[in-house]
């Protein structure tokens, strides 16, 4: 590709938009998965990393870890369109120099579905949390 234009990373306004899009997509994908996999119990064995120690957006979101989870669970989800959309949005937030974390998905079928459901549930909560208007310091939830 012959490219002379250097594209800047998303600015704060675009980052906020990406998070809004991710919030909507997370609900949509969770709903779709719950419809296709009825009756799955919620599991407490698995945890999706959500926030980093850095308070400043977008570094406050552990987008590279979340991206690694989605790239692993992608093949276990029928709706590839919404999943790929989420992966694309997460790539925009991910800073260039982050390590790719290793995610292992349970191999047993039922356990694998519980894992996927838990990740999607936690991702939806994570996006709600990130999208909450910033509360002034000291104010309790």
């Amino acid at each position: 590709f012959s490219h002379t234009l250097r594209i800047p990373r998303p600015d704060a306004k675009d980052q906020q938009k990406i998070i809004k899009e991710l919030q909507q997509l997370s609900k949509e994908l969770l709903e779709l998965y719950q419809k296709s996999e009825k009756g799955l119990p919620e599991s407490t064995k698995y945890t999706l990393p959500c926030l980093t120690s850095d308070p400043h957006p977008p570094n406050n979101i552990n987008s590279s870890a979340i991206l690694a989870y989605f790239q692993e669970i992608r093949r276990h989800i029928d709706n590839k369109g919404v999943t790929d959309e989420i992966i694309g949005q997460l790539k925009k937030l991910k800073s260039q120099d982050t390590w790719k974390i290793k995610v292992s998905v349970p191999t047993e079928s039922f356990e694998c579905k519980c894992f996927v459901l838990t990740i999607l549930q936690q991702f939806s909560k994570c996006m709600d949390q990130v999208n909450e208007p910033q509360r002034p310091k000291g104010q309790l939830r």
Binding site: S2, H3, L5, I7, P8, P10, D14, K17, I18, E21, K80, G81, V82, D84, E85, G88, Q89, K92
Partner: peptide, 24 residues
């Protein structure tokens, strides 16, 4: 879709080709 998501900044370059050659 799904390889087109907003917000985003894209670059576009069009290459035209016929039997006599290519123009960008």
């Amino acid at each position: 879709y799904p390889n087109v998501t907003n917000p985003d900044i894209c670059t576009i370059e069009v290459e035209a080709q016929n039997t006599d050659g290519i123009v960008k």
